[in-house]
Simulated assay, not measured.
Amino acid sequence: MKKIIALSLPKNGCTGGGEKQANRTWEALERVLKRAGYHKGGLEKYKASGDIAQHMTPEVNRSQSFQVFYRSLLELTGNNCKLL
């Protein structure tokens, strides 16, 4: 049975941090997961993103940039409801 991890990554209040900000976020996520016993050999971003996505509810994600991305996908696909 997989552990449930209460994840609290630090927020630095920056917006538009680009690649440098994204790298710090992944590093913080990797530390949390390693402490919980996951990804001991290093975080594989593509695998972690797929694992995380299975547990997301996109329409209630609080990230403004994610909501812009999500709405754009909905518009591009002509879908007015949740993407499957």
Rank of each mutant, 00 (worst) to 15 (best):
38 Y>D: 00
4 I>F: 10
28 A>E: 01
71 R>D: 06
38 Y>R: 00
17 G>W: 06
36 A>C: 12
7 L>G: 10
12 N>D: 10
26 W>F: 07
69 F>R: 07
63 S>Q: 13
47 K>A: 03
20 K>H: 07
32 V>I: 11
16 G>R: 15
13 G>V: 04
65 S>Y: 09
49 S>K: 08
12 N>A: 05
56 M>S: 14
34 K>V: 04
42 G>I: 05
77 T>C: 14
27 E>M: 06
82 K>Y: 00
1 M>I: 07
1 M>H: 12
49 S>Y: 07
41 G>R: 03
59 E>I: 02
4 I>C: 05
39 H>T: 02
21 Q>M: 08
68 V>P: 00
74 L>W: 02
4 I>R: 14
64 Q>K: 13
28 A>N: 13
23 N>H: 08
31 R>Y: 00
62 R>S: 12
55 H>Y: 09
5 I>N: 10
4 I>G: 07
72 S>D: 09
2 K>V: 02
48 A>H: 11
14 C>D: 09
64 Q>A: 14
3 K>D: 01
81 C>F: 12
79 N>L: 07
80 N>C: 14
69 F>T: 05
37 G>Q: 06
17 G>K: 08
70 Y>Q: 02
69 F>W: 08
43 L>P: 00
58 P>L: 02
38 Y>M: 00
51 D>G: 14
8 S>L: 03
83 L>Q: 13
30 E>S: 11
24 R>D: 00
73 L>C: 13
83 L>I: 07
43 L>G: 01
37 G>E: 06
6 A>K: 14
58 P>Q: 06
77 T>R: 15
50 G>Q: 11
59 E>G: 15
28 A>L: 02
54 Q>H: 11
65 S>L: 04
16 G>T: 08
35 R>V: 03
74 L>Y: 06
7 L>R: 10
25 T>M: 11
62 R>C: 10
11 K>V: 00
59 E>K: 12
22 A>M: 09
68 V>T: 14
71 R>H: 12
43 L>T: 07
43 L>W: 01
